[in-house]
């Protein structure tokens, strides 16, 4: 097993190298650079641009270097100093920017994920065990509505409702008076009061999809002969379902962790913009629009790393859960 992990980590090195190349290439793809887009927006607002100053900026930022040198400088900084470069737009190191947003991003994403599991798991099991019952149809109906309604519509509707009926300030994670206040009980309650909207908005479509998958997986497993064996042993039905088929039906979810991790960081950008959440999604979008190349590149690289780590974790977990899978 340790040997297997070592092997997998070694495999990750060339993959990461390729990933960083691709990330760098993606941010170089659009014509022009940060300075171009800065000039464009300055000219839009009527300001005069001195060509010499532009040239000087290019010099400072290193845009005149050949691409491979730019890449080497960037990746060298990451590897040797943990320096992900400098955000032109925010005038701050990229690493600071990302870490700052990471806390709230993870809080919201993990809360939404827990919400999805807490709601979807019991409903999915119920739907599978009592397939074609009235309850199953009701949940299926609600589930499809959840899948079909776009997240931002739901976000707008919930924001309107919370403003109209609960008199809450909408958007963001805190009411204005708490934004810069130190942590206190009041701030925590205020956070909870704001948090439910993004959680429900982000969670609904996931919940709906999850119910369908659990229902499908589990009803396949319920028909397997080993379920009858367990029943014939004299095991009560709820124990039969939880111990045997559910255990196997959940395996596919473990293998999906690889997708969940990057999703946690960059997912639900539109919802975050609509709800004005201080998460990483909007930051990434802004960086891509303004060609803030080191910020965007670091984001893409970070998501790649998270995908790889997620895949490794899910492979290891799956092997622990399912004895049929061997390390080779």
């Amino acid at each position: 097993m340790p040997q297997y992990i070592l092997k997998r980590v070694l495999y990750m090195i060339p993959t990461l190298f390729g990933l960083s190349l691709i990330a760098f290439m993606i941010i170089q793809l659009p014509p022009g650079d940060y300075v171009t887009s800065m000039i464009a927006s300055m000219q839009d607002s009527g300001a005069n641009v001195d060509p010499r100053q532009v040239e000087r900026l290019r010099e400072i930022y290193g845009f005149n270097d050949p691409i491979w040198l730019q890449y080497l400088k960037w990746i060298g900084g990451i590897l040797t100093r943990g320096d992900f470069g400098y955000s032109f737009e925010w005038n701050r190191p990229v690493a600071d920017l990302i870490w700052e947003r990471m806390g709230s991003t993870l809080a919201i994403s993990v809360a939404a994920l827990l919400f999805v599991w807490a709601v979807a798991l019991p409903i999915g099991i119920y739907s599978a065990v009592r397939r074609h019952s009235v309850g199953d149809y009701v949940f299926t109906f609600i589930g499809f509505i959840g899948l079909a309604v776009p997240n931002f519509i739901l976000a707008l509707a919930l924001m309107y409702m919370s403003y109209r009926y609960f008199g809450q300030s909408v958007g963001g994670l805190f009411s204005p008076e708490y934004v810069d206040a130190p942590w206190s009980w009041g701030k925590f309650v205020d956070l909870l009061a704001h948090l439910w909207i993004p959680i429900i908005v982000i969670g609904t479509s996931g919940t709906a999809a999850m119910i369908r998958v659990i229902r499908a997986n589990l009803s396949d497993e319920l028909r397997k002969p080993y379920v009858i064996t367990a029943k014939a042993k004299g095991l009560p039905e709820h124990k039969v379902v939880i111990k045997y088929p559910l255990r196997i039906a959940l395996n596919p979810f473990v293998s999906a962790i690889g997708w969940v991790l990057p999703e946690l960081v960059s997912g639900v950008t539109i919802t975050a913009i609509v709800l004005n959440l201080p998460t990483a999604g909007p930051l990434l979008l802004r960086a891509l629009i303004s060609q803030d190349m080191y910020l965007a590149g670091s984001f893409i690289l970070l998501m790649g790393v998270l995908t790889l780590v997620g895949m490794l974790i899910s492979d290891l977990l799956l092997a622990l859960l399912d004895p049929r899978i061997r390390f080779t």
């Binding site: 397997k224 002969p225 080993y226 009858i228 064996t229 367990a230 029943k231 014939a232 042993k233 004299g234 095991l235 045997y244 255990r247 196997i248 859960l321 399912d322 004895p323 049929r324």
Partner: peptide, 20 residues
């Protein structure tokens, strides 16, 4: 009674026991 007084063996030895 299930399992205690009546035991059951059935056909598919491949799938009648839990694989995990």
């Amino acid at each position: 009674i299930r399992g205690g007084r009546i035991g059951l063996i059935f056909q598919e030895p491949m799938s009648s026991l839990s694989p995990v």
